[in-house]
Design a protein around this nucleic acid. Structure first.
Length: 471
RNA sequence: GGUGCCAUACCCAAGCGGUAAGGGAACGGUCUGCAAAACCGUGAUGCAUCGGUUCGAAUCCGAUUGGCACCUCCA
């Protein structure tokens, strides 16, 4: 099936055609590891995971590269803001290297908890300083740089297509509109950006490397250009990130990459919209922020969050609230329960043969191929669950087929375990059965209330009384 | 000030010019000693507002109102 994707470059939905027939090069902007990832960050990674799963689902062999940004970045070219890595290091008494290590581990735990498939390559910025230096040298050799005030700058006036991705009209742009951002007077054009720093107002920068321009550290954008080209070649298929990366980060990446190679760098640009909370954009600098581990602590399964995220299209803002998360949890638990019903009816994985099942499968695939329309894909999942014309085995097989894309761990669902109720609960349940036989309904209801307090819900099914844990 | 995105039922949310998917909540019913669960059924003559284009518009165009984001590293 043909996959169509919304390309930020060109602002339209386009049929996806990789450079090499079945091989896809995919670079996803990874986390900056100076703090925990919040659930808004994670939303974008789930979107990228879905993208990779959909492409794989339709037969592409995806080479997925994700960076770990462990170099401290400044808050502005020439201003006096804080280096976030350094700031965290100071606050905790650890080295920046230890900070990066710690939060990288935390990030990968979240990543795996959410059932995301590991990239083929995880690459750390600090392992690729040489590659960055070599790339800057190429840009320099092509005449796109100048040095001023100890730093190497990229001159956007030498790159006529600058701003194409974001649709920037350079004449109208105002820079440093915010009060806390200062103009860097070294710049020839206010939109020029630094490729290599040797001068820092922060004094003791812990991370410094030798370079042809002096001892210092790389600019903010160069790592993605250097590492993506190293692992995927000078031209590759897809580059993704959060929507905030469009006007500055990706715009600058394109400029420096294409200035270095002299040809087109990336064919498809995909960007995930933000997750909002009640107050607007999620932020780490507000102090308290929502992490996946916090949701787990509150009793949610990571798959509840994943289901919640899949309920909205990746190109739409999604507003987080615990009410909405509860809704997602309820939905997901209902699906789990239905799958357990199928397993109890001895559903097995089988070849899909009936026309009805094939049509359902096709509708699901169309939703997935249509710019990753997961809300619609979930609707197709529900239609399949409620379909009464196909066998339980076909239904079960379809659900697992869908889960290749959804990644909701449906394959790990097992039959309900009746034996692990605990002796006390089992004894009460038995007593209630007897009470009902004796028509002692007052006692039966009393027991039901006791079990409720213990966290169990009584269900009188045609097969007998069953207990299930409360959600 | 510039740029980009958005506005669909009580809530979440699809829809990409052919007559409003899906889930939750609510309500009614079947079942039940009563519940719960399950199953069946009910819901926008209308898609922020006002114009326009069209045989036909939630979908295209214009204006208005409201919301969000970016222009500083952030997903």
């Amino acid at each position: 099936m043909k996959v169509s994707l919304y390309n930020t470059m060109g602002r339209s939905i386009q049929e996806f055609k990789p450079i090499n027939e079945k091989e896809v090069g995919f670079y996803a902007c990874g986390p900056t590891v100076y703090n925990y990832a919040h659930i808004g960050n994670l939303r974008t990674f789930i979107f990228e995971d879905i993208l990779k799963r959909v492409l794989t689902h339709f037969g592409y062999n995806v080479k997925h590269v994700m960076n770990i940004t462990d170099v401290g970045h400044l808050t502005g070219d020439g201003d006096d803001g804080d280096d976030k890595m350094t700031k965290t290091a100071k606050e905790t008494g650890k080295t920046v290297w230890e900070i990066a290590e710690f939060y990288t581990t935390a990030f990968k735990k979240d990543f795996h908890d959410l059932n995301m498939i590991d990239p083929n390559v995880w690459c750390k910025a600090t392992d690729h300083i040489d590659d960055m230096i070599k790339l800057i040298q190429r840009i320099e050799a092509n005449g796109h740089t100048y040095q001023a005030g100890g730093n190497v700058y990229f001159s956007i006036d030498t790159f006529p297509e600058y701003g194409k991705l974001a649709g920037l009209k350079l004449d109208d742009l105002q820079t440093a509109v915010r009060d806390d951002v200062h103009v860097d007077t070294n710049k020839k054009n206010p939109k020029d950006f630094v490729l290599w720093f040797t001068k820092s107002k922060f004094g003791a920068q812990q991370m410094m490397w030798d370079s042809p321009w002096g001892r210092g550290y790389p600019g903010w954008h160069i790592e993605c250009s250097a590492m993506s080209m190293k692992y995927l070649g000078e031209s590759f298929d897809i580059h993704s990130g959060g929507i905030d990366a469009i006007p500055v980060h990706h715009t600058n990446e394109i400029a420096q990459s294409e200035a270095a190679t002299g040809h087109k760098w990336v064919n498809y640009w995909l960007h995930g919209e933000f997750l909002l909370d009640e107050t607007g954009k999620m932020s780490k600098s507000k102090g308290e922020f929502l992490t996946l581990q916090l949701l787990i602590k509150k009793g949610y399964d990571p798959m509840d969050y994943r289901y919640f995220v899949l309920g909205g299209h990746y190109r739409s803002q999604l507003r987080f609230s615990f009410d909405n998360l509860d809704n997602a949890k309820k939905n997901r638990m209902s699906i789990v329960s239905r799958i357990q019903d199928m397993l109890e009816n001895d559903a097995k994985q089988v070849e899909i043969e009936s026309e009805e099942a094939k049509n359902l499968r096709n509708s699901f695939d169309e939703a997935s191929a249509n710019n990753l329309n997961m809300p619609m894909a979930l609707a197709e999942l529900w239609k399949t669950l409620k379909n009464d014309k196909i066998t339980d085995s076909e239904k079960y097989s379809l659900v697992l087929y869908y889960d290749d894309v959804l990644g909701l761990r449906f394959d790990q669902i097992e039959k309900r375990k009746k034996e692990n109720l605990g002796e006390e609960a089992q004894a009460l349940l038995d007593e209630r059965v007897q009470a009902k036989k004796d028509k002692n309904f007052a006692r039966a209801d009393e027991i039901r209330n006791e079990l409720d307090k213990m966290g169990y819900i009584v269900k009188d099914t045609p097969q007998g009384a069953v207990l299930s844990k409360k959600l």
